[in-house]
């Protein structure tokens, strides 16, 4: 464990807590894409298949449970909690996210480190996570004004993988044979997808005005 990875995990944890806070306290999911949340449930479910078979550390298992639990509960809230479900703009959140999964599963079947069920599912979850934010970013372009909590959520979610990139660079230089192109490239693509969001988020913060992505 290094400081970059810890910062990444804490940023990721903060992003799901911000979203849970928004949904649980103000009972609103306005501006939040249910499609992205559903993709994240699949990302964690396929990423943590080994949660009961391989034990790395208390920290590792605890964080896996938190990410699994929070992503499932966010989807549950947005789908079945009456008050929250009412604030979900279904008309705008129309990204066909199931079509995102197909190329990811095909790519995972083609490019992976080992051709085992577990490894292919794990690689699939990496590819899927890289594109999971797309429905949310599309929704952001459509809903003109977004509230601060949603903006912070996306900012933290994008930032965590950026810290992971620093972690991979650090581990590359400190651990022999630590080379994982698949993880590195999908993590880089994932972070780059946030590039324009980060730009407009920074502008809105600098000019102290509402965050608005150009249509």
């Amino acid at each position: 464990m290094n400081i970059f990875r810890l910062a990444g995990d804490m940023t990721h944890l903060a992003s799901v807590l911000v979203l849970l806070l928004k949904i649980h306290t103000i009972k609103s999911c306005a501006g939040v894409s249910l499609k992205t949340q559903e993709l994240y449930v699949i990302v964690f479910a396929t990423r943590y298949l080994d949660i009961f078979t391989s034990f790395v550390s208390i920290y590792n298992s605890l964080m896996k449970l938190i990410f699994l639990g929070s992503s499932f509960s966010i989807v549950w809230y947005m789908r079945y909690h009456k008050a929250v479900h009412r604030t979900y703009d279904r008309e705008q959140d129309t990204f066909r996210h199931w079509f995102l999964m197909l190329p990811c599963i095909l790519l995972a079947l083609l490019i992976h480190e080992k051709f085992t069920f577990f490894e292919v599912m794990w690689t699939f979850s990496l590819y899927l996570e890289a594109v999971a934010i797309l429905p949310q970013l599309v929704l952001l372009q459509r809903t003109r004004n977004i509230d601060n909590l949603t903006g912070q959520y996306i900012f933290l979610l994008g930032g965590y993988r950026g810290f992971y990139i620093l972690n991979w660079i650090y581990r590359y230089f400190t651990e022999p044979h630590y080379v994982h192109w698949i993880t590195w490239i999908s993590g880089l693509v994932q972070t780059l997808l946030y590039a324009d969001f980060f730009y407009y988020y920074f502008l809105s913060w600098k000019n102290n005005k509402k965050l608005q992505l150009p249509a």
């Binding site: 080994d50 790395v56 964080m63 990410f67 044979h177 630590y178």
Partner: peptide, 10 residues
């Protein structure tokens, strides 16, 4: 072992 080391990440 390298891929195992990667699996220590979330």
């Amino acid at each position: 072992l390298s891929s195992a080391s990667l699996k220590d990440e979330l």
